[in-house]
Nucleic acid binder design. Sequence first.
DNA 1: CCAGACGTTGTT
DNA 2: GTCTGG
DNA 3: CCAGACGTTGTT
DNA 4: GTCTGG
Length: 219
Amino acid sequence: MCGRFTLASPAQAVAAALGLPDFPALPPRYNIAPTQAVAIVRGAPVPEVALTRWGLVPGWTKDLARLPLLINARAETAAEKPSFRAPLRSRRCVVPADGFYEWTGAPKARRAIYFTLADGAPFALAGLWDRWLSPDGSELESCAILTTAPNALLARYHDRMPAILPRERIAAWLDPELRDPARVSALIDSYPAEAMRERAVGPTVHSARNEGPGCVEPA
DNA sequence: CCAGACGTTGTT
DNA sequence: GTCTGG
DNA sequence: CCAGACGTTGTT
DNA sequence: GTCTGG
């Protein structure tokens, strides 16, 4: 799955990787955690960037406190889940990232592994977003990252991996005219293992309170 | 019809 | 053990 | 995802 | 909001 990721590349590199005319300069992030602000790209033909809470809150939610944190959505079943059905049809987004972490090992010997593309370039995670009107009248926009079957690299550690969209599929994923669930899910696949790299990193990333390049330092 | 649920992951 | 915060 | 908290009372 | 269970 995907419960922590990074986005520290220069804005220009993010724009190039996503095929966008530009991308805003954001503070480099090495430890993006659930409930924190996450940049998403949504809409077409001119995509816009928005900052949303990581942990999707369905529009019909009545009690935020009782809602589990929906940071991931299984691509195989999202079309049938009440929380994800409508967002999958009409509120798809991409989440720019340049790496993500997976944890492995027994509870007392947990290690984090950091995954990137082989060339170190930023990439697009397939995401969903929604908008929730809180009782006090304020609006909350939130997002979730889709997961899929792991490639051979990820399978060494986990039975899931985040859905990375190859650059040529980003526009189709963001296209609001695309509403057929079968065609939507056809865009999701396990990214080729040969195009990815992994490295074990130290314990700094374990705490979501830690931030900075120390999170990705080799163990 | 109304009421009630609506989620993912990892671990054992 | 379970829930909340980041 | 992991880390960390998890409580009540009285007094100022 | 939308689907399922009764």
